[in-house]
């Protein structure tokens, strides 16, 4: 899979050359940037939003350029390492360390971690 990934990169260079996009086809609005930031719970400085929009749009444009490469015969890559998942036997190996773990929690009660109220 690693080889396939490299091949894909080489193909791209061969097919279209590695252009740093000047003209951006796919561009993010500032509203979209704010929404993405909200989903990731990131607080953005409002003044910085246009700059983020521009930088993120360049990344998307690069991705869009990669999208033009024909990948019909290339298997999608889920992980860059050519290894497979090792499995663990189904055995309980952890002991109860609740008291230790809860020392760093801001608030606990009756063994529970307390967080600001969540309303569904």
């Amino acid at each position: 899979m690693l080889r396939q990934g490299l091949k894909l990169m080489n193909q791209q260079v061969a097919v279209s050359g590695l252009k740093i996009p000047g003209v951006m086809k796919m561009s993010l609005t500032t509203e979209k940037v704010e929404q993405i930031a909200y989903l990731a719970r990131l607080a953005l400085d409002a003044k910085a939003v246009p700059e983020y929009a521009e930088n993120l749009s360049s990344i998307l444009a690069l991705v869009e350029q990669m999208d033009t490469v024909n990948t019909d015969n290339v298997e999608p890559l889920a992980h860059p390492l050519e290894l497979t998942q090792r499995l663990r036997a189904d055995v309980v190996t952890e002991q109860d360390h609740r008291d230790d773990y809860q020392q760093s929690a801001p608030a606990t009660e009756a063994g529970l971690y307390l967080v600001p109220q969540v309303i569904d």
Binding site: E109, G111, L112, Y113, L114, V115, Q117, D120
Partner: peptide, 12 residues
């Protein structure tokens, strides 16, 4: 657990 823990939510 949404019972009232001094206005907070308990997590298990």
């Amino acid at each position: 657990l949404h019972e009232d823990f001094q206005g907070m939510t308990g997590i298990d």
